[in-house]
């Protein structure tokens, strides 16, 4: 599904990703872990198409199409979803209306008709219920004045509405208390099936207690320095990153 080959990328002329290769197939969950400044979030920004980040070398294909050639909205339409570490507040744009517009953008591009507003409201209510989100978040403006936890829930709500093939969740667990973490994780698990894939970018092992990864990759100084199964995450939790990261 997703093929990253020898990716080099950065921002403002400084190289942060220094040769990453990764292959993600249908039905798989990959966790990318690493200390602060290892390039985790840069990787997420590159994959989602942030205009400030620049690829200097390498290739990324998604369903055999060149992902890096696509605009952010084309990636979304193609089925890539990015859960933001810091979801952006957009005052003045109603949350429910925005979600319907996003849902319709996907439908229209697939040649389907726009959803009936009442049907969508029903769909939204159902998804919000599973995430334990109060109804008032329909009326409020997109992330405007939301608490950290509600913002992250709102990201997963968008994921539920968009049903992506590949979801990249950037530090979705940070800023969540344990109850919210459990609810968010359950929400993500419900969306999982054999036809979609998930990349979890996280600093802590805690999230992986709830969402079980098939593969764990350790990112350090812009490179994947170790890959393994979920036991690797446990080792990192108990011993920290020092035993594994190169010293220079």
């Amino acid at each position: 599904m997703l093929e990253i080959k020898d990716l080099h990328a950065g921002v403002d002329g400084s190289e942060i990703i220094k040769g990453i290769s990764l292959s993600v197939n249908k039905g798989e969950i990959h966790a990318i872990m690493g200390p602060n400044g290892s390039g985790k979030s840069t990787l997420a920004k590159i994959l989602s198409g942030h205009p400030a980040y620049e690829t200097t070398a390498g290739k990324v294909t998604f369903d055999a199409k060149d992902l890096l050639e696509m605009d952010a909205e084309e990636r979304s339409i193609a089925g890539v979803f990015m859960g933001f570490q810091y979801p952006v507040e957009v005052p003045g744009v109603n949350n429910a209306e925005f979600l319907r517009m996003a849902h319709n953008a996907r439908r229209v591009s697939a040649g389907e008709e726009e959803i009936d507003p009442l049907d969508f409201d029903e769909l939204l209510s159902e998804k919000m219920k599973t995430l334990g989100m109060e109804k008032k978040y329909k009326e409020r403006n997109l992330n405007d004045g939301f608490s950290g936890g509600e913002k992250k829930k709102n990201e997963i709500l968008q994921m539920a509405i968009l049903e992506p093939k590949l979801a990249i969740l950037d530090e979705t667990d940070s800023g969540l208390d344990i109850d919210a973490l459990r609810i968010v994780s359950e929400g993500v698990n419900k969306l999982r099936n054999n036809n979609n894939a998930l990349i979890l970018i996280t600093h802590y092992q805690r999230l992986l207690d709830y969402i079980k990864p098939d593969f764990v990759h350790v990112l350090s100084k812009g490179k994947i320095i170790k890959s393994g199964d979920k036991s690797l995450a446990l080792e990192l939790e108990s011993q920290g990153y020092d035993w594994i990261t190169p010293v220079n």
């Binding site: 989602s48 205009p51 925005f98 996003a102």
Partner: peptide, 19 residues
Amino acid sequence: QLFYLQTRGLSKKFAKELL
């Protein structure tokens, strides 16, 4: 904000108009 809306599948033009 523009980028955020784009990552949800809204075209740049439409997202600008919305904002």
